[in-house]
Design a protein around this nucleic acid. Structure first.
Lengths: 193, 193
DNA sequence: GATTAAAGTAAGTGGTTACTTACTTTATGG
DNA sequence: CCATAAAGTAAGTAACCACTTACTTTAATC
């Protein structure tokens, strides 16, 4: 990895510390130390702790990653498409765990910004799933695809929360993939009789 | 409602404030003011802010409510049993929203205690669902009931998170019940071919 | 009416926090 | 070599924090 600018080192340090100890639990002194800069440099660069926090949120947002991860899914059957998307969705969240931790800790303090993030997050995933289910749907079923999409996203999101945030069990990747595969089958059973 | 003791007034005030502003974001002065007691009384009763926090967690835990809510489900078909349980699960979480908010905010700060809570929470619900699915399962299917139970809990938990914590949309109860009903059908499709 | 327990008031402790000011060092590039 | 920009150092601000001490008030009980 290349050397980071002073600014980026501060953002990285703040990102990690905010995710581990929350906004109020982290002091600017700690952040400066972790970034190997003086506290004065931190304030010269960002003005205040709050503005730094906002830059961290912007800089580390999961939304661009999510957009990238759900592009270009080209497979021939619904099972493969859904499984592929489920994995991408899941592992994108894993790679953005710190960001999700921050939004959890600060959902009340910064509710506007964070609600906005989750709104994008949820509608984007749901719409994508609906679009895909529509393509493959049996014509003689009238299942509510939006509800099925919500259910699918919910299972996967909960799997992530349970393993990565709440219980931290470090489950093997193959086991995760098997569960995701089962979840796909549950969905498939719902749209094809 | 009857008058609360000094101790209980402090716990109530702390419960609300911790859920709104987090542990570090709430001062003992604020808590005392909200409880209409002097700060000295707070410290005389609980010793320290941290001990008060622990009492709040203990006093307001969702676990006993969850145990109570999932007892005595007597219905004649699986659809009704699952729907009834899904509703109880969902609305218990709604009634304990503040508690869940606190665990979210402080999951890193008090990880041991909170992981313990979620471990109980998750295993309890999953085991209950598995037990019920087993009773009604078609003998000729070999679906993995534990995975199906996880999926079911996941959908419902995510529905709660999305509506109550992340988006706060105040959706009508009938709409929630319809979604829960659809979720039950998704599960039923998975265990009966 | 005296005793006792639970509350309040007032004042203050030492520590930490976000943030500032003023001055100095370091490194870069013309 | 000089100008400039970005960094550091040192010291300090005012506010706030959790928590304490010492003393007083209130209210219920015997």
């Amino acid at each position: 990895m290349g050397k980071l600018s002073t600014r980026d080192r501060i953002i990285e340090a703040a990102y990690t510390l905010f995710s581990e100890k929350g906004y109020h639990g982290t002091s600017t002194r700690e952040i400066a130390k972790a970034a190997s800069v003086s506290e004065v440099t931190l304030f010269r660069n960002f003005g205040s702790k709050e503005l730094l926090f906002e830059k961290v949120l912007k800089n580390k947002s999961i939304i661009p990653d999510l957009l990238a991860a759900t592009k270009d899914v080209e497979q021939y059957n619904l099972n493969d498409v859904l499984l592929s998307l489920a994995k991408r969705f899941y592992y994108t969240m894993v790679s953005k765990k710190k960001f999700i931790m921050i939004t959890f800790s600060e959902i009340n303090q910064y509710s506007e910004k964070i609600i906005d993030i989750y709104e994008k997050f949820i509608t984007q995933i749901d719409e994508l799933f609906v679009k895909i289910l529509l393509k493959y749907k049996d014509d003689n079923t009238n299942s509510d695809l939006k509800t099925i999409a919500m259910a699918f996203r919910g299972m996967i999101f909960d799997l992530f929360l349970t393993n990565e945030i709440f219980l931290r069990k470090n489950i093997e990747k193959t086991k995760i993939n098997n569960i995701l595969s089962s979840y796909v089958k549950i969905i498939l059973n719902s749209i094809n009789k």
